[in-house]
């Protein structure tokens, strides 16, 4: 059992959860992830580790509520526990000195780029972050990133905050009009966004790394459920990745494979919501009829 130390909402559907997991905290490197199982009957899901504090023995997870399991996790408060946390898994980001590195994060992908930004900065790069959300309230970790980046460009689809437009538009501006040439792009977030980033940088021959988020079960290479095609070759994101050359990734296929359990995911989430509703209804009733 792993205890939750802190929990708060970063955006309407994104929660920051700090967990006690000393071994993971000690060994975590940017790019690594963990597999979490919230309850006994629950799924194993891969989650981004946004930060690790080896001294406190704690890791920070940033969780977007997209289904039953993430919902269960997001409902937990400090002092409560999750059943299992295993990691750190996956290969760590290769931190090189590229020059000017632009990190592009969308939604909770912003949590993936935060530790990377820190590491790239420490390695002597100039680091810019382009982060996006539907509207102001969906832009996360801006202050954290400002502390470790040379420049942060928040973008909103509706123009309610920062740059009005998609992260890719802002990225294009940085590449074409920016005072400093872009030497490398690192991206994490929704598949269509990562695909658009890759398509944008491909003709410009800018090295681009994407952090992929396929469905996983064990996270140790044993099941092969997270297989992705990279330059026509089958790779397992959990042990060969999760980061790959974005220009080689078959994003179409990744996107399609992510929908494999859409129906079951809805069933499981509806069931959970019904349970919570029943529970709340009973709480509203006088004790005698509960």
């Amino acid at each position: 059992m792993f205890e939750i130390r802190e929990a708060r909402w970063l955006a309407p559907n994104i929660r920051r959860v700090v967990l006690q997991a000393p071994r993971v905290a000690l060994r975590h490197r940017p790019g690594n992830f963990v597999i979490v199982r919230v309850v006994e009957e629950g799924e194993r899901i891969p989650l981004t580790v946004a930060d690790a504090d080896p001294d406190a023995g704690a890791i920070t997870l940033v969780v977007q509520v997209v289904g039953a399991t993430t919902d269960q996790l997001a409902r937990l408060e400090p002092g409560q526990h999750v059943m299992d946390v295993v990691g750190p898994l996956g290969k760590a980001t290769e931190i090189e000195r590229f020059g000017h590195v632009v990190l592009v994060g969308g939604g909770c992908g912003t949590a993936v780029i935060y530790p990377q930004a820190k590491a790239f900065r420490a390695a002597g790069n100039e680091v810019s972050a382009v982060i996006g959300g539907r509207s102001k309230e969906h832009v996360i970790l801006e202050d954290d990133l400002r502390a470790v980046c040379d420049a942060v460009h928040p973008c909103t689809d509706d123009g309610s905050y920062g740059y009005h437009g998609f992260v890719t538009q802002k990225l294009l501006e940085l590449i074409e009009d920016g005072a400093v040439p872009v030497d490398a792009v690192i991206t994490a977030g929704p598949v269509p966004m990562m695909k658009a980033v890759a398509e944008l940088t491909r003709p410009k021959k800018i090295r681009t790394i994407a952090s992929l988020n396929p469905i996983m079960v064990d996270g140790t290479g044993m099941c092969g459920g997270c297989r992705v095609m990279i330059g026509g070759e089958m790779m397992f994101a959990c042990v060969d990745g999760p980061e790959f050359d974005a220009h080689q990734v078959d994003f179409e296929e990744l996107s399609d494979r992510l929908t494999a359990y859409r129906e079951q995911e809805k069933v499981a989430w509806d069931r959970l919501n019904q349970e919570h509703k029943d529970h709340e209804c009973k709480l509203g009733l006088p004790e005698s009829v509960r």
Binding site: E41, D218, C223, G224, Y261, Q264, A268
Partner: peptide
């Protein structure tokens, strides 16, 4: 491995009581 892990280890044959599909 994946098919059996989902069913045996994760109990997918009891879905949706077990949430692994």
């Amino acid at each position: 491995n994946e098919y059996l892990t989902r069913v045996n280890l994760m109990g997918a044959f009891r879905f949706p009581e077990n949430t692994t599909p």
